[in-house]
Amino acid sequence: MSRAAVRSDVSIAIAVWKALFLREASARLATGRAAWLWILLEPAAHIIFLMVLFGVIRHQVMQGANIEVFVLVGIWGFFLVRNIAQRGMEAISANQALFSYRQVQPVDTVLVRATVEAFLYLVVGAILLTALAMLDIDVRPADPLLVMWAAFLLWAFGLGLGLTFSVVGSLLPELGKVIRLSFTPLYFLSAVMYSVSSLPQGMRSTVLVNPITHGLEAMRSGWFASYRGEAHISLGYLAFWALATVFLGLALHMRYATRLTAQ
């Protein structure tokens, strides 16, 4: 293949991604009169509820971190993974009409949806942190690079789940319903509202099987210099699952590309 042909393929892919990004962002924010407001209010409502719920046992929950940012990090990280996975799963069916264009592939829609969600949640996180800062709460991270690296790996894991679930959900719609329901218990098993080190040893090992837990606890360790989380937290473990799910999802898209476009 000539260099010119490679450039042409790349330029076509970039053009498709740009168009899909604008389409997805517009659809995400214009599905209802207050769609953009709900994106912000959903995590904010969870944060306020958990702050009230755990405010009375602040010292047992926090271990060297203020409760507001502690909860925000947990909610933000989990919702990032959940929304990318769930919206990625719905990407193919929502964009089925576009597959009549040869340039648009099912995998493109999932990749773009994951990018849109990342952009939206960066904005949501910035707004919520600004609101806490206006209440005289220290929101400065102690190790910004660790926070960003953990957040990126959470995004990558969500992308991998989205790629995998998009194929599974399209070929086996019944499993798609089960996948959506599974995120409810996962919410309580991801250290969203507690420190892993505060759990009994048996429960601790169970929670640590979940890769999301490692990402959230690593973000907290990077945010609070005095935070002492679980010693067995490993971003390498999260990175392994992120890579594994991304490669699995891409392999499934390659294997079932014809069936996905013909659904």
Score class of each variant (00 low, 15 high):
residue 66 N to H: 14
residue 66 N to I: 03
residue 67 I to C: 04
residue 67 I to Q: 12
residue 68 E to F: 03
residue 69 V to T: 13
residue 69 V to H: 08
residue 69 V to M: 13
residue 74 G to L: 08
residue 74 G to R: 07
residue 81 V to A: 08
residue 82 R to K: 14
residue 83 N to M: 05
residue 84 I to G: 01
residue 88 G to W: 11
residue 92 I to P: 00
residue 92 I to T: 05
residue 93 S to T: 07
residue 93 S to G: 02
residue 94 A to F: 00
residue 96 Q to T: 09
residue 96 Q to F: 03
residue 98 L to A: 06
residue 110 V to K: 10
residue 110 V to M: 03
residue 111 L to E: 05
residue 112 V to K: 10
residue 113 R to T: 08
residue 113 R to K: 14
residue 117 E to L: 09
residue 118 A to I: 11
residue 118 A to T: 12
residue 120 L to M: 12
residue 121 Y to T: 09
residue 121 Y to R: 15
residue 121 Y to L: 15
residue 122 L to N: 06
residue 123 V to G: 05
residue 124 V to K: 12
residue 127 I to A: 14
residue 128 L to M: 12
residue 128 L to A: 10
residue 130 T to E: 06
residue 131 A to W: 13
residue 131 A to D: 08
residue 132 L to E: 02
residue 132 L to G: 03
residue 134 M to D: 00
residue 136 D to L: 09
residue 137 I to D: 04
residue 138 D to R: 15
residue 141 P to F: 11
residue 146 L to Y: 06
residue 147 V to T: 13
residue 147 V to Q: 08
residue 148 M to L: 15
residue 148 M to Q: 09
residue 149 W to S: 11
residue 150 A to D: 09
residue 154 L to F: 04
residue 155 W to I: 00
residue 156 A to C: 06
residue 157 F to D: 01
residue 160 G to H: 11
residue 162 G to Q: 03
residue 162 G to I: 08
residue 168 V to G: 02
residue 169 G to T: 11
residue 169 G to S: 12
residue 170 S to V: 03
residue 171 L to A: 06
residue 172 L to V: 15
residue 174 E to H: 13
residue 176 G to A: 08
residue 176 G to D: 10
residue 178 V to P: 01
residue 179 I to G: 00
residue 180 R to I: 01
residue 187 Y to G: 00
residue 187 Y to W: 13
residue 187 Y to H: 04
residue 188 F to S: 02
residue 192 V to T: 10
residue 193 M to R: 06
residue 198 S to V: 12
residue 199 L to R: 07
residue 200 P to F: 11
residue 201 Q to P: 00
residue 201 Q to K: 14
residue 203 M to T: 08
residue 204 R to K: 13
residue 204 R to G: 02
residue 205 S to M: 07
residue 205 S to Y: 00
